[in-house]
Design a protein around this nucleic acid. Structure first.
Length: 755
DNA sequence: TAATGTAGAGTTTTT
DNA sequence: CTCTACATTA
């Protein structure tokens, strides 16, 4: 095994371990993917049949990349037979194979979160419950977390703790919604994300034959990103591995950032309790980042109480210190970053894809995007509304879904009257009611409304029959044509293409293009599958389209671009230069996390993940003001900045002034009208970048701000004071800004200059 | 039943 | 602010 030579000692040992439980604790940048890849290659090299290896990853993209790497090591033929994918996609596949035992059609639909919430809304209506009290997203989360803990609808209703919780929060009927929700899913031949795991658990629990079959099939189980698995997932693993106990988990407790969706960090912290024979391998050498970055990240993470002991170190260069930017506004923050990217790129010529801007929330991308656009820096934003969540895409997929599974209620509701064909809400409501009364699928009623004595007019019946026949026709098309041709035909004869084409607005054009993009995706799929000798029908495409995310899309990038994404989305990636924006209290850490120690620790891990993405240099920035929901709010620097050992920071402000940030801010804002402040003028490293915007913008004394005065604001530009009210510390001015409109500003914060 | 207008809510992260 | 969902009107 030549290739072992390029690994370090603990990496080699981890790779060469074959039988029995193993846990690989992989620090950030320690070559985790490489070890996992080599380990699988090594197993195959040692004669283990790839058919017997199951490897679970966090994203489909990760699985695909790993498979390609393994193919290079052991050859295409061998690699092809590996089972690799996300928990959801692998188990969806198995559930389709074993669908008879599960009691679902093999082409069951997978409801995404939007479908699920929409269904919950429909149930609320049936139960006459107020959607403001029973917020669909809240109910969904409650059900989801129950499922992730393997609590069925019946168990939920019987659990006195849960019920008293719900009673306490004035939502006593959640158990009822849960039960009905499962009923409706069943009738629609649909599962939500959590069901995929839940039903897999049930299957393995209740059917010894199936259990044995998959235990013997997956003699070797490997799990990546184990720190982000939930109880349901771990339970599946335990069941599968119970016979041979060849289970290898790889992860980093310091990078566990998905507790909000049920991930249980205890899975990794207590893995050895479950398998006392576990061999533990620690990968502690970081190959990615400079000493400064590694040490700064260590100084952050050590503040967390709950963690496995390890010491991440690097032999790399010292590198530059982490630079801190402070700006007056979120816009300026964007400009500072854009200017710095421009400067570094001019100097180093690494290409714009060497830069990433990371942030806590998607909403922050706007100001950053604007700044990059102004500076003519190419960029690509990841996340936000995903491609597959767009209305036009869901509409077309709705036709595909309904044709493949006519009981798919959410798909039906979505398209039965889109494009408009005269079947309105009233009619649809009648059908849904009738279906519920007879406890049959919606499609049964649609096919033959008279059999169920639904009161409809002859005209409606005709329209309905036309729709029914349309779907029948699509069904034939899907049977006979490949995915692309079928998709094309359905898009055309459903009227969707025409509908979108007739909309000449910019948004309409974009929607049309999106649909075209989906169709070309189908084309690519059809050709790829054919090439590999695999089936290329529409159902094959639809099988896990609900499990795809934007990250799985192949981007045919023509030019290098700066990456903009949330910290979560950046997990597993690396960039030479990383900017972490919006390091402010109530933003990062998020407002919702600051009250609980566990949540705050997760935010801190998130920051750790962000910082450890960088190879050469990291920047962190915060703004003193920021727009949120159209309102200007005032921000304080994040506690995380203080938590970094200052020897790793290039942060000129703290040295001169007090280290207490709130005092610092207060002193600035209070003394604002008078004397010149040394500390508040932009520090040297900022001068250059902020000079394009407002250079050390000085406000006038509040006594000069009177009604009728012409003033200038650092952000809104020129305007006229309409009214001033209140007394000095809390004096408030109403100002009309040209082109911006009327704003109310507190003078102690807002800097207004009288012209 | 379709189209238009208005009110209300939302920003934590995603399979 | 911006988007969506609902209600009202034609």
């Amino acid at each position: 095994m030549d290739f072992l030579n390029i690994l370090n000692d603990p990496q080699q040992k981890a790779v060469q371990h074959i039988d029995g439980p193993a846990m690989i604790i992989a620090g950030a940048g320690s070559g985790k993917t490489r070890v996992l890849t080599f380990k699988i290659a090594y197993l195959i090299y040692k004669g283990i049949d790839p058919f017997n290896i199951l490897s679970l990853t966090f994203t489909n993209k990760a699985a695909k990349e790993m498979k390609e790497r393994i193919a290079k090591a052991v050859g295409e033929q061998q690699a092809k037979n590996l089972w690799m994918g996300t928990f959801h996609s692998v188990f969806a596949k198995i559930l389709r194979i074993e669908h008879e035992k599960v009691g679902f059609p093999s082409n069951f639909t997978i409801y995404d979160t939007d479908d699920a919430k929409s269904l919950i809304k429909a149930i609320l209506k049936d139960l006459n419950l107020d959607p403001k009290v029973y917020k669909p997203s809240l109910v969904y989360n409650r059900i989801s977390s129950a499922k992730n803990n393997l609590i069925s609808a019946d168990a939920y209703a019987d659990n006195t703790n849960i019920i008293s919780d719900d009673n306490q929060s004035q939502k006593p009927y959640i158990h009822k919604i849960y039960k009905l929700y499962q009923n409706r899913l069943f009738r629609a031949g649909a599962m939500d994300f959590d069901d995929l795991l839940f039903k897999m658990n049930e299957l393995l629990r209740d059917d010894p034959e199936i259990l044995l079959k998959y235990q013997n099939k997956f003699r070797y189980v490997l799990v990546d990103e184990f720190q982000d698995t939930n109880y349901s997932q771990f339970t599946i693993l335990k069941r599968l591995a119970a016979r041979h106990e060849n289970i290898t988990v790889v992860g980093d407790d310091a990078q566990s950032i998905y507790a909000f969706r049920g991930a249980n960090i205890q899975n990794i912290l207590n893995f050895k309790n479950t398998y006392p024979d576990t061999q533990i391998f620690k990968l502690e050498q970081n190959y990615r980042s400079t000493k400064n970055i590694v040490n700064a990240a260590n100084s952050i993470i050590k503040q967390n109480k709950e963690q496995l002991k390890k010491t991440v170190w690097t032999a790399n260069d010292e590198g530059e210190k982490i630079k801190v930017f402070r700006t007056n506004s979120d816009q300026e923050e964007g400009m500072s970053i854009a200017n710095e990217i421009f400067r570094v790129e001019n100097e180093q010529h690494l290409g714009f894809d060497s830069f990433a801007i990371l942030y806590r929330t998607n909403a922050q991308s706007r100001a950053l995007e604007e700044a990059l656009r102004k500076s003519d820096i190419p960029y690509r934003i990841y996340g936000g509304l995903s491609f597959y969540q767009r209305k036009e895409i869901k509409d077309l997929l709705g036709y595909f879904r309904l044709t493949l599974n006519p009981n798919d209620e959410e798909a039906l509701k979505r398209i039965i009257n889109y494009p408009a064909r005269g079947i309105g809400k009233t009619t649809l409501d009648k059908f849904i009611l009738t279906a519920s009364q007879h406890n049959v699928g919606l499609w049964k009623v649609i096919e033959n409304p008279l059999a169920f004595k639904v009161q409809i007019t002859g005209g409606t019946l005709n329209k309905l029959n036309a729709f029914r026949d349309l779907i029948y026709a699509f069904s034939k098309i899907i049977e006979n044509e490949n995915a692309y041709d079928a998709g094309q035909k359905i898009a055309a004869s459903s009227g969707i293409l025409k509908e979108l084409y007739s909309d000449k607005s910019a948004e309409g054009l974009a929607r049309y293009e999106n649909v075209q993009e989906l169709l070309s995706g189908l084309k690519e799929f059809s050709e790829d599958q054919k090439e590999q000798g695999l089936p290329a029908k529409l159902p094959d495409f639809m099988n896990d389209v609900a499990l795809l995310t934007d990250q799985d899309q192949t981007d045919d990038e023509e030019q290098p671009k700066v990456t903009l994404m949330t910290v979560h989305a950046a997990k597993g990636l690396e960039f030479p230069y990383v900017f972490i924006a919006g390091l402010e209290e109530n933003l990062f850490p998020s407002q919702l996390s600051v009250n609980s120690r566990a949540d705050l620790e997760e935010e801190r891990r998130l920051f750790y993940v962000a910082l450890t993405r960088s190879e050469k240099k990291a920047y962190i920035s915060y703004a003193l003001t920021r727009f949120r929901w159209g309102n200007l709010i005032y921000c304080e620097p994040s506690r995380f900045i203080e938590e970094i050992d200052e020897t790793f920071l290039d942060y000129p402000f703290v040295e001169k002034q007090t280290s207490n940030f709130s005092d610092f801010i207060r002193s600035q804002t209070k003394s604002q009208p008078t004397k010149k402040k040394t500390a508040f003028t932009p520090p040297r490293n900022l001068k250059k970048v902020s000079s394009t915007n407002a250079v050390s913008f000085e406000g006038s004394p509040s006594s000069e701000i009177v009604a009728g005065a012409e003033v200038e604001h650092v952000r809104f530009g020129k305007g006229k004071v309409l009214q001033v009210e209140g007394v000095d510390p809390n004096k408030k001015a109403t100002v009309f800004f040209n082109g911006v409109g009327q704003k109310q500003l507190l003078l102690k914060f807002a800097k207004l200059k009288v012209l």
